[in-house]
């Protein structure tokens, strides 16, 4: 048996205060555990991993773990990551972003990082809300749900992160929830290893800012909702159209191994130098 928690403790920064800053039941802690397990499983050293985070609740994750960590500006984590990866392709770059971070303010960087196929792992922690600023609607807040800036219900439609990433040509596109930690470990391990741009969307509950305003009694109920409404993508595809409504497919949606931008750039350099 893997002594999971003891292993995780080894990767945490012992100079930081624990328990961490997240609210009770927040899925972000589960994701942090999954990142650590995946890195460990791949046998990577702490030195070769760069964890880059944006701003917001997810942004606070970087400080807790003993990798090279960068807490960037709001929405721009992928731009820093692009620079790091191009400057040193040997580094394994994992980018942690929230939904507002990755898709609202950082939407442009997200689609272009996917198009460019830069070799980083993009984790989108989708909790459907701006948590840290107090529960404002984000670009993944579902239609008709409530937030502090949509007190009469949300009129806009929300992004489907997976379809967006697929449309932009990301190599590896996947979705899981904080309740499906084993699947998360599998997806993350695969994403970190895979060349090019790899997306893992994690649905993670924010009871404090989203659940309370949207008729959830407690955070456990939100996890139960994930259990009830998610379905393996393979099974989802077999469902007739009319039964798909309201179901959230999880699993792997795209699995390509096209070389990342940094790899292609390296090849260009070699080609130019061999001509000389």
């Amino acid at each position: 048996m893997v002594e999971t928690t003891k292993l995780i403790h080894e990767y945490l920064r012992h100079s930081k205060k624990f328990p961490h800053v997240y609210c009770p039941g927040c899925g972000h802690g589960i994701v942090l555990g999954s990142i650590i397990r995946s890195v460990h499983h791949l046998g990577l050293s702490k030195d070769e991993v760069v964890l880059i985070a944006g701003i917001g609740c997810s942004g606070r994750m970087a400080v807790y773990v003993d990798f090279n960590t960068i807490h960037t500006t709001h929405g721009r984590a992928l731009t820093f990551a692009t620079g790091v990866k191009l400057a040193n392709p040997k580094l394994k770059v994992i980018v942690v972003m929230g939904d507002g971070d990755a898709l609202s303010i950082g939407g442009n960087h997200f689609i272009h990082a996917a198009r460019r196929n830069i070799g980083v792992t993009a984790l989108v922690l989708n909790n459907n809300i701006y948590g840290m600023t107090g529960g404002q609607s984000s670009s993944t807040t579902p239609e008709n749900s409530y937030s502090t800036t949509t007190p009469y219900g949300h009129l806009e439609r929300d992004f489907d992160v997976v379809n967006l990433a697929l449309g932009c040509g990301a190599n590896f596109v996947s979705r899981t929830t904080a309740l499906h930690a084993q699947l998360m470990d599998k997806l993350l391990t695969k994403a970190i290893e895979n060349p090019g741009f790899n997306v893992v969307e994690v649905l993670t509950p924010c009871f404090t800012q989203y659940g309370r305003k949207n008729k959830f009694k407690n955070v456990v109920e939100m996890y139960s909702w994930y259990r009830k409404n998610t379905i393996k993508v393979e099974k989802y595809k077999e469902l007739p159209e009319e039964k798909r409504a309201g179901k959230i497919p999880i699993g792997v949606f795209s699995d390509k191994q096209e070389p990342g931008f940094e790899e292609k750039y390296g090849q260009l350099r070699e080609k130019l130098r061999s001509k000389k």
């Binding site: 048996m1 002594e3 928690t5 972000h28």
Partner: peptide
């Protein structure tokens, strides 16, 4: 091992 994997605060360990 569900509790160990899903404890957001790394506060549970399960060992044989």
């Amino acid at each position: 091992g569900f509790c160990e994997l899903h404890c957001p605060d790394f506060a549970i360990s399960v060992v044989a």
